[in-house]
Every structure is written in structure tokens, then in C-alpha cells.
């Protein structure tokens, strides 16, 4: 029952911290735009004055992209490095904003204040960054162990079923996702704990995160799974909608922009729901841990 209480409480906390969702969305918009705007400018200037854009009406046309010339090819060549930098930036920005978010999700809940939000963000930044990076590396290593190694062994052995590597990959991915939820839980508990502390103590926070995760593994993991499925389903539906929608007018394109950004915003809200639910579960468990037993009460009365 705690699980559903935590989910409900998480939802309520998210509602009270909706400004945080706006901040995360804005952060993602700015980060992605930083990456995309030069590309957009390049493409627009390259195609300006040509009727070739008619070939893009039904979707991407490889020939048109290719004819953009060496500049485009250079951009594509730089894409992996750019994406890596983008992810680093997003991780750093996420660590910063999540500091404020977790702070605004804890009890006692006050009225959301931007001053408090950014104060907590800056206070928690380094701890959150370390927590994110440490647990991110753990998740990466987990993926290597669970996905990379089995596939490598199967491929190197060169014998056995042809479908085995594919099935192994699928099974490995599923196992990885299910196990990675534990690490995500640990990171959420760690950040929720850190947000409640006055001084940064990131490694203690990570320790707390794992302890709490394993002490409440069943309820925590199930809750995380529910949240993961909801988020995954939402992301899949959103991306499908965005991909399939092919507006042909300027107004339609504007609507696409609005709708797609609303969907990104909702994705942010779902993430904060996860943070709120984990924070709530942690607080419930904390209150249980500190509740005096009946024997203690009787002794006190005597």
C-alpha cells in the first residue's frame, strides 16, 4: 500500500513543484537548440532560393541532404562528438536543476520559490553531479557486462544458433533495464537524502541510496517499474505521434512545435513524479524507522 501512497504523494508533490518541470523543459529546449540552431541555419541557407524543398514534403530525402555538400558532411562527421558534448552538458544541467527539484519535493513542503530552487540547485550541484556520474558509470558497466559480454562471447564462438545473438541481445537488454532500475532507485534515494541534508556528502548519499534501495527492494523496485513503464509508454507514443505527423503548412508546423514541446514538458513532469514518489517513499520509511515502539512508550509512561 505504501507503494501507491508514495505514487499518489509523488503526484501531489509534482503538482506543487510544476515550476520545476518548466525549468527542466526549458533547460532541455535550450540545450537541444544550442546544438540544433547552427545546423538549422546551415540547412536553411543552403536550401534558400531552391525549389528542392518540395522533395522534403513527405519526409527526409537523402539525396537532398547529400547535395548540401561538404559542409553538411562535415557536420555529420562532427555529430558523434557533438552528441557526446551535448549529453555531458545535459548531465551537468540536469544535476544542477535536479538539486532544486529534489529540494522542492521534500517535506515540509513550502510554496515553490525560485530563489529557494536555485539556491538548492547551486548547493546540491556538485553532490548531484557526482551521484549522477558515479551511478551513470555503474549503469554503463552494467550494460557492458549484461549486453556486451554475452554478445561478444556468442559472436566470437562463431557456432551455435544464428538467432542466439539476437535473442541474447533482446534478453540482455530486458535484464539490463530491469536491473538498471535498482541503480536509478539508488540514485533517486541518494539525491532525496542529499537534498534533506545541509552539507554536501555525496558518497554518504550514494551509500544511503543503495542501503535504502536494498532494504525496500520489493516495494521500491515495483514502484520504479510502474513509473518506468508509464514513462516508456509515454515516450513511445509521443515519438510516434511526432514522427507520423507531417503538417504541410506553416500553421501546422507551428502546432507541431507546440504539441511536441508540450509532450517534452509532460515527459519532464513524469520524471519529477518519479523523484517525488521516491522521496515520498523514503520519507515514509524514515518516519517508520523513527516511530517509537509500544514498549518504549510504556516504559516512558512508567
Amino acid at each position: 500500500m505504501n507503494l501507491f501512497k508514495a505514487l499518489a504523494s509523488g503526484l501531489l508533490r509534482t503538482g506543487k513543484a510544476w515550476q520545476g518541470a518548466i525549468m527542466i523543459w526549458l533547460g532541455s529546449l535550450l540545450t537541444a537548440s544550442l546544438f540544433l540552431l547552427p545546423f538549422r541555419r546551415f540547412v536553411r541557407s543552403a536550401l534558400d532560393g531552391s525549389t528542392i524543398t518540395e522533395r522534403l514534403r513527405d519526409g527526409i530525402d537523402i539525396e537532398v541532404l547529400g547535395d548540401l555538400g561538404a559542409g553538411f558532411r562535415n557536420l555529420i562527421t562532427a555529430l558523434p562528438a557533438g552528441m557526446f558534448l551535448l549529453v555531458l552538458l545535459a548531465v551537468a544541467l540536469g544535476a544542477f536543476l535536479n538539486g532544486g527539484i529534489f529540494n522542492s519535493l521534500k517535506t515540509p513542503q513550502k510554496r515553490f520559490s525560485f530563489a529557494e530552487f536555485f539556491s538548492a540547485s547551486s548547493r546540491n550541484f556538485w553532490s548531484f553531479l557526482v551521484i549522477t556520474l558515479v551511478i551513470g558509470v555503474m549503469i554503463y558497466l552494467l550494460s557492458v557486462i549484461l549486453i556486451g559480454v554475452p554478445v561478444l562471447i556468442l559472436t566470437m564462438s562463431g557456432s551455435g544458433s544464428e538467432k542466439a545473438p539476437f535473442i541474447t541481445v533482446i534478453v540482455s537488454i530486458i535484464v539490463f533495464v530491469l536491473l538498471s532500475l535498482i541503480f536509478q532507485l539508488a540514485s533517486d534515494y541518494a539525491r532525496a537524502w542529499q537534498a534533506a541534508q545541509e552539507k554536501p556528502a555525496c558518497f554518504r548519499a550514494i551509500g544511503f541510496g543503495f542501503r535504502r534501495t536494498f532494504r525496500t527492494i520489493v516495494s521500491s523496485w515495483i514502484m520504479m517499474l510502474i513509473l518506468f513503464l508509464v514513462q516508456g509508454l509515454f515516450a513511445w507514443l509521443s515519438l510516434t505521434l511526432i514522427a507520423r505527423w507531417i503538417p504541410g503548412t506553416g500553421g501546422g508546423v507551428f502546432m507541431l512545435f507546440i504539441v511536441s514541446q508540450v509532450l517534452v514538458l509532460l515527459k519532464c513532469v513524469l520524471r519529477i513524479w518519479r523523484y517525488g514518489s521516491v522521496t515520498s517513499l523514503m520519507e515514509m520509511k524514515n518516519s517508520l524507522d523513527h516511530k517509537p515502539s509500544d514498549a518504549t512508550i510504556q516504559n516512558t509512561q512508567v
Binding site: 537541444a32 524543398t53 512545435f257 517534452v264
Partner: peptide, 23 residues
């Protein structure tokens, strides 16, 4: 219009993509 449409989609895809890396 087609260029703007593609760019808007890329923007949203990119936002979803980077959100996957933020724990």
C-alpha cells in the same frame, strides 16, 4: 515549411534523447 517541420521534429527527438541520459 518542410525544413521547419524536420527541424522541429529533430528538436523534440533530441530533447527526448538527452532526457534519457539525465538520471
Amino acid at each position: 515549411v518542410p525544413v521547419k517541420r524536420i527541424m522541429n521534429k529533430l528538436l523534440a527527438f533530441l530533447q527526448f534523447y538527452i532526457s534519457a541520459f539525465v538520471l
